[in-house]
């Protein structure tokens, strides 16, 4: 039973009862007096406001490392309410953890994706560091394990599953059975085609977001996202192949990877056009 004259609000995501004329700053002074950032329903406020039933108040002291409990609430505070729930419920598979896949994984973890399935057979090599999201300390580790280590350090609330296998026609369907969206992030053009062909024919209820033509330092704006069919999106300029004299470089690979990541986000949020 709620006491008369009280309303319930969420303070750092914990249900609390406060007086029905309480303001955001009243509650801050009561619960976390030294908080210098006050977020009300996802927006940082600069002026005091009277709280309403079910308001969400987040109190942060700048520079303080939050407890695990607070952390998720604080990450969520940067996401538009309503968006976060959908993103949190999504499950995405990433095929290949090189320049594209490692960047897609990091971006999706930062937006609070619910579950990531990371698939790669390879280990981190020094030459990978020119564009892939790994650190020196990861050299020699399997990319799946190195990426899991990174993602845990960024957002420990993402459920990360890893599979250290070489994907081909024989195991693609079973590997990605449980995800909603698959990101094609391979290097080899034959592997790219094989994954897309297999997903489109054997997993027709999944959506695949692939990439082709991302090498070099050609114009930013030549990287495009195209919707090839309802469940197949393609990112890149279609022609810039990685080859001697036209290497893969961090900026353009990351542009393409984040086209892929934003396409995944848009699909999750029901925005099916490019």
């Amino acid at each position: 039973m709620l006491e008369v004259g009280k309303i319930k609000v969420f303070v750092n995501e914990k249900l609390s009862e406060v007086g029905d004329n309480s303001t955001a700053y009243d509650v801050r002074n009561l619960i976390k007096k030294d908080a210098d950032i006050v977020i009300l329903n996802g927006h940082i406020i600069k002026e005091d406001m009277v709280l309403k039933e079910n308001d969400r108040l987040t109190l942060i002291k700048r520079g303080e490392v939050p407890t695990q409990d607070e952390l998720e609430a604080l990450l969520v505070a940067r996401h538009t309410p309503g968006v976060h729930e959908k993103v949190k419920n999504a499950s995405v598979g990433i095929a290949g953890l090189g320049g594209l896949g490692s960047q897609v994984a990091v971006s999706l973890a930062r937006i609070g994706i619910g579950r990531l399935l990371l698939v790669d057979f390879d280990v981190v090599e020094p030459s990978n560091l020119n564009r892939q999201q790994y650190f020196i300390k990861h050299i020699g580790m399997f990319k799946t394990e190195a990426m899991k280590d990174l993602l845990t350090a960024i957002n420990p609330f993402v459920e990360v599953e890893t599979k250290q296998i070489y994907l081909d026609e024989t195991n693609i369907a079973e590997t990605f059975l449980d995800v909603d969206i698959i990101v094609e992030a391979f290097d080899d053009p034959g592997c790219k085609a094989s994954l897309v062909n297999t997903v489109l024919s054997k997993l027709p209820d999944k959506t695949i977001v692939a990439a082709s033509g991302i090498a070099g330092y050609f114009s930013n704006n030549s990287i495009r996202t195209k919707k090839i069919k309802d469940n197949f999106y393609l990112v890149g300029d279609n022609v810039s192949e990685a080859q001697p004299g036209c290497g893969l470089m961090a900026p353009r690979v990351a542009i393409a990877a984040n086209h892929q990541a934003n396409t995944v986000l848009r699909i999750i949020l029901g925005e099916k056009e490019v």
Binding site: K192, A193, K229, Q243
Partner: peptide, 28 residues
């Protein structure tokens, strides 16, 4: 409709067919 690779040799195309081909280049 996606044409599986093992049908490329047998699949005959007609005049009024609409064909889409995506050709991948390497790099990732």
């Amino acid at each position: 409709e996606i044409v599986p690779k093992d049908q490329y040799a047998a699949k005959i195309l007609n005049e009024d067919d609409k064909v889409e081909i995506v050709s991948f280049v390497g790099g990732g």
